[in-house]
């Protein structure tokens, strides 16, 4: 115990910086991944028109998205990081490490999110689509006002999952020398000539981050669900300023 405490006192700025980078990468990666997934998921859930150039276009885009999803879900992120970062370097682009890291996490998360969001959309009862259509809403209005709010609420646990996975899996980005928590911990271990202590501290830090994120998202879910009960609206709220009943 004393040994661990000694490491904390000596190296806490490195741990803190590492945890900061890890959070930064996973937050941005999850947000951008969500945006990529939202677009891809929506496009993939559009029914293919019966004829015309729109059919050909949508088919082509769907095929590209299918390839993207298959490749990024089908290969490990650690390998993607190496291929993209060093591939770019070989092609003559010197990528900023942090930017490369964010990009890799984002497109990786996007591939998973696309399927999560498509699943969320198709889980919405067709009656919701029909009611919106029957009121004269166009597909964009139907999506933004009716379907997506419900779909996103339903997939929030899955989105939270992706976030937690990202906090842990950004550790693989140490292979392209991003100074996230794992990288910093290895450095501490190298200086201190011991492994258990430094990595035990990293373990605690990772857990604090993932647990905090889980709790925060649970709170967001509850917020979105709104109050469990509703109050009957009093007559006065009708805005007429007229009170009904006796005494008025």
């Amino acid at each position: 115990m004393g040994q661990i405490w000694e490491i904390v006192i000596k190296y806490w700025p490195m741990y803190l910086r590492g945890a900061g980078v890890t959070l930064y990468l996973s937050i941005l990666g999850t947000v951008f991944g969500f945006i990529i997934g939202l677009l891809a998921g929506i496009i993939r859930s559009i029914p293919v028109p019966e004829d015309g150039w729109k059919r050909i276009l949508l088919r082509a885009v769907n095929a590209i998205l299918a390839v993207y999803i298959a490749i990024f879900r089908g290969t490990p992120m650690i390998v993607q990081a190496m291929v993209i970062y060093y591939g770019a370097a070989q092609a003559g682009f010197e990528m900023d490490r942090m930017a490369a890291g964010i990009m890799i996490v984002s497109i990786n998360t996007g591939a998973y999110m696309a399927e999560i969001i498509r699943g969320g959309i198709i889980s919405i009862d067709t009656g919701q689509f029909e009611a919106a259509q029957a009121l004269g809403m166009n597909p964009v209005q139907t999506m933004t006002k009716v379907v997506l709010p419900q779909a996103i609420r339903n997939i929030l646990p899955a989105i939270g999952n992706e976030f937690v996975i990202n906090i842990k899996d950004t550790s693989v980005l140490n292979v392209i020398s991003i100074t996230e928590l794992y990288f910093q911990t290895s450095t501490v271990a190298g200086i201190h000539f011991s492994f258990f202590g430094p990595f035990f501290i990293a373990c605690i830090l990772y857990f604090i981050m993932t647990y905090a994120v889980t709790r925060i998202l649970r709170m967001v879910e509850k917020r979105l669900d709104g109050p469990k009960n509703y109050a009957l609206t009093s007559r006065a709220r009708k805005g007429k300023g007229v009170q009904y009943g006796e005494g008025n």
Binding site: D125, G127, Q128, E130, A131, L135, K145
Partner: peptide, 13 residues
Amino acid sequence: LGMVFQQFNLFHN
């Protein structure tokens, strides 16, 4: 045209 469905189909959100 107003439409009323068998399953109501109110917007749950």
